[in-house]
Amino acid sequence: MLALLIRDLRLAVRAGGGFGLGVAFFLILSALVPFGVGPDRAALAPVAPGILWVGALLACLLSLDRIFALDHEDGSLDLLATAPLPLEGAVAVKALAHWITTGLPLILAAPLFGVLLQLPPAAMPWLIVSLLVGTPALSMLGAFGAALTVGLRRGGLLMSLLVLPLYIPTLIFGAEVTRRGAEGLGAATPLVFLAGITLGALALIPFAASAALRVNLR
């Protein structure tokens, strides 16, 4: 399992773009919103938590099809399916690699973009915590969507259609944590729900995703 993780990370580093693209997209989105909403602090601050979460979610979506598509093309997926490593484990590891290359840079960059969007300083820790707790679910659910559409030639758009509705609960609770943090309210309840969804997704989705992969391999 570790070997697979190291290989995926090494590939992401060597191929380039793996770390950078999502964050660059996130930056552009955060820079565009003020052009649409207006430069007022009073207008930006209330929408900042939501924009940051939606931005993180879309940035995460961008790189999802890379989770399995390349391995499917070059036959690695066939070989992984016959390896002693259970396919469920391989799916979980690949989702983890996606999170490290996409989710983690987003979390590190989010406070910076929060400043751009006039997010109140009190909300910063909550933003980071909510992203830290929520984004693993985004990667895992994304891996499920990628597994469903791996054999399709133009699966990218379809995958967004399948994955985005699954992101709704995570988005609601994640943005709610940040919003409550910004308003100085207690954010523990939505944070617990968010963690519950993430843990549930991490526990169950690998089985669904590997079942979908097996169907697409045959």
């Binding site: 290989r7 090494r10 590939l11 060597r14 093309e73 070059d74 036959g75 066939d78 070989l79």
Partner: peptide, 14 residues
Amino acid sequence: VAYAAHADGIKPAL
């Protein structure tokens, strides 16, 4: 089983 088919599962970047 060790399976080998037309695609070799080789990563060009490695």
